[in-house]
Design a protein around this nucleic acid. Structure first.
Lengths: 246, 246
DNA sequence: TCAAAAGTGTTGACTTTACACCCATGA
DNA sequence: TCATGGGTGTAAAGTCAACACTTTTGA
């Protein structure tokens, strides 16, 4: 699996002898979960002495033979035991001094998982769910990575049917609304929220009711099959055609 | 400037011996310009034999001692002679086989420059402006990088005061509208466009008129000082506070 | 006087927000 | 019978889209 990189382009070769320094690329995953009406993120205790006592995101160096997406899925799979997870690339962070041990450029992804489904490798790995509101300092530049990913998540949830990855298979509209409120940090009007969700046609009414609930049970819904896991591909196309303005 | 990377984290060390393979990080810049009512992009003839006859984006390997942003500015400066340019990171591309000579992961940026201001290094470098509508195949995965950046540009122009970087200092509303039309690939209603722009309060009326124009001259405008170059910083903050929904 | 573009408001359609009452269930 | 949340509609405000005529200038 060892590859020797021989760059032939003048473009590249003339400027930088790439054998002359070491650089690593890592992936860092902001793994969001949702529980008790709170948005959470999966963190691990940092094992760098520079950051002792701090938590960090889950990450790893990418391997020579894997794409960025493969590496992200691998990390998720290793840490949470889950594949088939929603993942989205957000930003790449590359300050020279962001890693105390050397030059490491990291590509940040966020992913959304159903906390209930993931029962592996937790404490035995020093891995814990943290409420967003409890998070202060993180190791490396992980605080800003987290904030960048949260900001992106907030931008996307009204546009794409993705939050369902944080919920169990079946859920009520109340649960869904509470989830939106937790992510956005605002409270929403119930009637308007339901209208808006209905308009999007993301959900199937599965003709079941909530159970074991101490009040009038609500209907249960499930996200339509075509929206399960993975965002739908972006609408990149030929040059013109674009959503209209004016 | 040589750094030896000694990673101490178990997290990192246990999985990947990072000395065991070479990987390079490059920056690729989609440099947009605007001329003759067309959106253009600055390309260079590829010097890889695999891509002979094809054009590619401007890019370079990043150096051990520079941040991603510094590297992007350096590339722009070297190629166009301009600094003080609008630049935005878009996406990182890392397919294993995207570069024929080895593993190169590239971080894509787009930038917006005023073609008129840039008079350097052009043909002597095999550098040319290409109309977007004329572009077919590009070297590497540069076609998809270009499309991704164009898509991002289209998303941002109504939201942030950035297109002015493509125009001369002073411009008329007609020129501005034509620019929006060129970017979006649609035609816009003049009255609605002017209303929308007026609402945003991005422009100063500088009390000058167009000259040397074969029809009734229009007023000239200039973008307000606080919006010159560079996007305003993103509004990352504490956890809650977010734009409202409902 | 013609051609070209500047400049300017109103209406109808649609979208978004705010808001309150009765209902079903389990405790 | 009470507490909890389920379920539902309407009116007012705001935004967006469509649309036409008069003015100014240079050729």
């Amino acid at each position: 699996m060892e590859k020797i990189l021989k760059l032939k382009t003048a473009e590249i070769e003339k400027i930088s002898n790439i054998e002359s320094f070491n650089i690593a690329i890592s992936i860092d995953c902001v793994i969001f979960g949702y529980e008790n009406k709170e948005l959470k993120v999966l963190l691990i205790k940092s094992d760098l002495e520079e950051f002792s006592g701090l938590y960090s995101l889950l990450g790893d160096i990418i391997r020579p033979d894997e794409d960025l997406e493969e590496a992200s899925y691998r990390i998720l799979k290793e840490r949470t035991g889950m594949d088939d997870v929603y993942l989205e690339q957000v930003h790449t962070f590359g300050s020279v001094d962001r890693h105390p041990s050397g030059r490491v450029i990291t590509v940040a992804y966020y992913s959304l998982i159903d906390i209930k489904h993931h029962r592996l490798n937790l404490t035995h790995n020093d891995l814990h769910w943290h409420s967003l509101s409890d998070i202060n300092k993180l190791a490396f530049d992980h605080r800003i990575i987290l904030e960048t990913c949260l900001e992106r998540l907030r931008e996307q949830i009204m546009e794409y049917p993705i939050v369902f990855n944080l919920l169990p298979d079946k859920f009520s509209l109340r649960e869904l609304q509470e989830l939106y409120e937790a992510i956005l940090g605002v409270s929403l009007d119930r009637r308007n929220f339901r209208k808006k969700i209905a308009l999007k046609e993301w959900l199937d009414d599965i003709d079941e009711m909530e159970k074991e609930v101490t009040h009038r049970p609500g209907k249960l819904y499930r996200v339509k099959k075509k929206f399960r896991k993975k965002k739908q591909p972006s609408k990149i196309g030929g040059y013109p055609q674009v959503s209209s303005m004016s």
